[in-house]
Design a protein around this nucleic acid. Structure first.
Lengths: 133, 133
DNA sequence: TCTTTAGTAGTAATCATTACTACTTACAAA
DNA sequence: TTTGTAAGTAGTAATGATTACTACTAAAGA
């Protein structure tokens, strides 16, 4: 007999399913508000609090990753491997960097890394080219 | 004749002087509230808004650096060279890393880095040793 | 010494996020 | 299949770091 306490999986919820699938199918690191705005049309009863709560649940279950952006909305990522992000200050697009700084820190310093947030702000290649015109 | 518009230096203010010197003399990357709490004893009329305003002014003049900590208080740093930070989740101490990830990003990716924030959360050497006891 | 305007104290507002409350629903057991 | 219960939801209020506002103060050029 499985008691409630022992049940570790989450109960099914359509809202969480929708939110999770939205993150899985997006390539632009959406914020909670992005997700809410995009889904509100098809699911008018969806609440912003539900989006936040489920994103937190998905993060704590390790199904998605949170990207901390201190001066604005946090963003969410389907890529589970910890990695670094580039945020273009012109077009606001966020892209990925595959370099693992974590390994460098673990090796070079006596510091046991649990998680990290590396965000580089600058101008992406596309915006640089447009400036040259 | 120097008009107000042309005057680029800030007017002297005792509050800013005190706040700036506090950051210069600290090694633990204080937050605005840390600074306010530490100085309030000696300067009872000091306002938290003044601390925030002057920290922002000092950052925008390039005299100190802001370290963005998304889930809590931002912290401030006298070290002007951009660098990476380690934050111990046990003792909350913040320390510096001299590695320049900026150069790596600039070289390996077509991305013009303007600023960056790299924060590694984990357990510092001292806390690791205490866990072993 | 004036005059101007940057700076300050104290307080209200902002805004991303979380907490709360009454209602709804998944799902295990009867 | 029905029912009991606790997890999930919608809608709204609260939180908390930071910023804005307003009347007052003071640095410093004329």
């Amino acid at each position: 007999m499985i008691t409630t306490k022992e049940r570790l999986v989450m109960r099914y919820s359509e809202q969480r399913d929708i939110i999770y699938n939205f993150v899985l199918s997006s390539y632009d690191h959406p914020s909670a508000l992005d997700i809410y705005s995009s889904l509100k049309g098809d699911y008018p009863k969806l609440s912003l609090g539900t989006v936040y709560r489920n994103l937190n649940a998905l993060v704590s279950k390790g199904l998605i990753k949170r990207i901390e952006v201190s001066d604005g909305y946090d963003r969410f990522d389907k890529t589970l491997m910890e990695h670094t992000h580039l945020l273009c200050v012109k077009c606001n697009k966020m892209s990925d960097v595959e370099l693992s700084f974590k390994d460098i820190i673990n090796k070079e310093y006596s510091f046991k890394v649990i998680s990290y947030n590396s965000l580089f702000r600058g101008i992406c290649n596309k915006c640089l080219k447009e400036e040259e015109k």
